[in-house]
Computed example of a mutant assay.
Amino acid sequence: MPPVFPRPAHEPLAPVGPLGERPAGAPSETAYTTTAPRHPGEAPAETTRRLRPVVAEPEEREPAPPVTPDPALSWSAPMSPAAGRPVVTFGEPEGYDDDARPGPLGRRGRPRLAAVAACLVLGLGLVGGAVTGSWLVGDSEAAAAKDSFATARSLWHSVPVDQLFPPTVAGQGAGPGGADRTWTRTAVAPDSGCKDAFDPLLRKALSPVGCQRLLRATYTDATQTYVTTVGLLFTKADATATASLAKRFTDEGLDRRTDLMPRPYGPGFDVDQRASWTVSVLTDAPVVVYAVSGWADGRTVDEPQPAEDAVRPGATTAPAQAGLGHEAKGLADRVERSLRKQVGPYASERPT
C-alpha cells in the first residue's frame, strides 16, 4: 500500500468537477481534512469545518401607536342633520336559465311572463268560445224542441192511422216476467172531439190543456183473452201548460184514481169490464197517451187497479195476476214510441 502523505490542516479540499468533481472557483460549504493514521491500528483523524449562515440582527423599530375606533363611524352613533343617510347598494342577483347558465333574474322572467300572458289570453278565448258555443247549442236545442212540439200538434191529420196505430204491435218483454206480447188491432175510432169520450171527472181534469182531437184504437192479445183500448189526445196547450198538467197528475196522483179511468172503445168492451189503466201526459208534445184493459169475455171487475200497481212484483189482485196491468202499460208504451218516431222526420222536413 503506498504511503499517504498528510496534508496541511489549513489547505482546503479541491473542488469537485463533473462526475464528482467540483467546478473551479465554486465555494466550498464544508471542508474536510483527513489525516492517515501515523501508526498501524490507529484510526484516521478527521477535522470538519462547516459554514453557518449569518442571521442579521433585526432593527429596532418604534412601536406603532394603538388604533382607536372612530365613534362617529359606529352603528350606534347618532347621525348629524347635515349628513345624509348612507347609500347602500347591492349587486343585481344572479339567476340561471334552463341550461344552467348564469344571468340576471329580471331577464329570465320576461319571456315566461309573455308565455303565461299568451296562455291566459288563449285560455280565456277557449272558455269564451265554449260558453258561447253552449249558449248557441242551448238556443238551438230549445228552438228544435219548440219546433218538435209544434210539429207533434199536427200529427193527428198528417200521419196515416197505420203508423200511429199499427195493425200489429210487437211487445217484446212487455208481459209478466218479461214475456213477449203481440197485439192485433180490432177497431179504430174515427178522429173526433172529446165529447162523451171521458167520464165527467177526467174531462174536468184534462180541461186546462183543451181538446183538439182524439184518436182511439182497440187491440186484443194473441190468445184473444184480453182487450185494450189505447188513445191519443192532442191538446191545444203550449209547452208550459202541458208541463203544468203533467206535474199535477204526478203530484196529486190523478193517474191512480179509479174515478179518473179512461173509457174503452169498441164492441164487446164496456165500462164495467175495465180492470187496469194508465194515463201519461207528455211534456215534449201536446199529447196525452192513455190505455185501459179488461177481459174479452165480458166479465166485470169490482176493483180495478192502476197499471203501475198491477205490474209490481208480488201484486195479488185479479188484474195483476191476469197480467192486465202489463196489457195496458205495454201497449201504451209501444204506441207512444211510435208517436215519438213520427215527430223527428216531420220536424226535419219542416220548410225553413
Rank of each mutant, 00 (worst) to 15 (best):
P3K: 11
V4W: 14
V4I: 14
P6S: 10
P8I: 04
A14Q: 14
V16N: 15
V16E: 15
E21V: 13
R22Q: 11
P23R: 13
G25D: 11
A26G: 06
P27Y: 07
S28Q: 12
T33K: 06
T34Q: 09
P40M: 10
A43F: 11
R49Q: 14
R50P: 10
L51F: 15
R52G: 14
V54S: 13
V54E: 14
A56L: 15
P58W: 08
E59I: 10
A64T: 12
P65V: 10
P65F: 09
P65L: 10
T68L: 15
D70Y: 10
D70Q: 12
S76W: 08
P81F: 07
V87I: 14
V88K: 07
V88A: 14
G95N: 03
Y96V: 02
D97L: 03
D97R: 00
R101T: 10
R101N: 09
R101S: 04
R101M: 07
P102D: 05
G103H: 05
G106C: 11
R110P: 03
A114S: 11
A118D: 02
L120Y: 08
V121N: 07
V121C: 09
G123M: 13
G123H: 07
G128T: 07
V131F: 08
S134K: 12
V137Q: 12
G138E: 13
G138S: 13
D139Q: 10
D147T: 12
D147A: 15
R153L: 01
S158R: 13
P160A: 13
D162Y: 08
Q163P: 04
P166G: 06
A170I: 02
G171L: 05
G173E: 10
A174L: 10
P176Q: 05
G178N: 03
D180P: 03
T182L: 01
V188E: 05
P190M: 04
A197E: 00
P200A: 05
P200Q: 03
L201R: 08
L202S: 01
K204M: 07
S207F: 08
P208I: 04
V209M: 01
C211G: 07
A217M: 01
T218H: 04
T220Q: 13
D221G: 03
T223Q: 15
T228N: 01
T228E: 04
G231T: 00
L232H: 02
F234N: 00
F234T: 00
D238S: 09
A239T: 04
F249P: 01
T250Q: 15
D251F: 08
D255N: 11
R256T: 12
D259N: 08
Y265F: 09
T278C: 09
S280N: 15
S280F: 13
V281R: 02
V287S: 01
V289D: 06
Y290V: 00
S293R: 02
G294S: 03
G294H: 04
D297Q: 01
D297M: 04
V301P: 05
E303S: 13
D309L: 08
A310C: 04
V311T: 04
P313D: 05
A318K: 05
A320P: 02
K329P: 01
V335T: 11
V335M: 10
E336P: 06
E336R: 15
R337W: 15
Q342V: 03
V343L: 11
G344M: 03
P351C: 07
